[in-house]
Amino acid sequence: MPTNRTVDVYSDLSLSLSEAGSGRPCLILHGGGGPATVAGLAAQLSHSLHTITPTHPGWNGAPRPAWLTGVDDLALAYLHCLRDLGLSDVLVIGSSLGGWTAAEMAVRDTAGVITGLVLIDAVGVHVEGEPITDFFSLDAAGVAEYAWHDSTRAAVDPAALPAAQLQMMRANMATLRDIAGEPNMHDPKLLRRLGRVDVPTLLLWGASDRIVTPAYGAAYADAFGDGRLQVVPEAGHLPHIEQPEATFALIDAYVRAKA
């Protein structure tokens, strides 16, 4: 069973962590949909790894200090957290916004704490000719169409949600816009910096993702010093949810190859 703890990274920033399993430490970073979107992934990986799954500041009611306004702030906070915990040989796995955060962590990791990266349909870079879909302009039906292979399983009628859940979703979206919205879901300088990241990097991509396309993922992978792309059929922006068995198998093979 997962255990929860809070780590004080700065005097005004505490991170809430859910931990499970044992072995090599694995930091799992969620995307804009919140920690529930990576819960299944964390549960699966905890059979062989020590999984550490934070809730980003500002999501699900977690406090966010006023100065935390960008993914660079988030990346540095997690790097400092890993060092404060005395961890090494860390695998970082990130989905969407979490993948962007993982990439920003890697370019700043001068201590070599991170030894592996898995980015799942990550945003965060600018690729000429492959623009990131303006997620903030999409309604629920649009998110289902662009982010899922099977849009019928994802369409959500906001009017059918409990008021508290709807309020939390809106607050999460507001935080996502604050941290990642300008410019639209990317750091203009990140792509050219990734060549300095030489840890083995696996980019997993849903073949049907229309938020960031597989061609975008290929350019992302090529920018890393040691990156490769694996495309998951019949999956969109969250392949670990739509095609969990295929996604887990690719991650397991990557972990075994780097063991």
Results as ranks from 00 to 15, higher is better:
V255F: 05
D84W: 06
L190S: 13
Q243G: 13
W100K: 03
S46M: 01
P2W: 10
T133A: 15
N184M: 04
A154H: 01
E242P: 06
W205Y: 10
D222G: 04
V156A: 13
N60H: 08
G225T: 02
L250G: 08
E182L: 14
A66L: 04
L27A: 14
A159F: 06
S46T: 02
I52D: 05
L87W: 15
S22I: 14
D150E: 12
D84P: 03
L76F: 05
E19N: 04
I28C: 11
A147W: 04
F136W: 10
A159T: 15
H186Q: 06
H47E: 15
V92C: 03
V71M: 11
G34S: 10
P188Q: 03
P57D: 01
F248T: 07
R228P: 00
V113L: 13
D139L: 14
A39H: 11
S11I: 08
V197P: 07
P162M: 12
L202C: 09
L117C: 14
T101P: 02
H30I: 03
H240I: 09
V127E: 05
T152F: 06
R170V: 11
V125C: 08
A43P: 00
A147N: 02
G225Y: 06
V232I: 15
L29P: 08
L166R: 15
E19S: 05
S137P: 05
G206V: 12
L41D: 00
T152I: 07
G21N: 12
Y216S: 01
G225Q: 02
L229T: 03
D198Q: 11
A141N: 08
T3L: 07
R24T: 11
E245C: 04
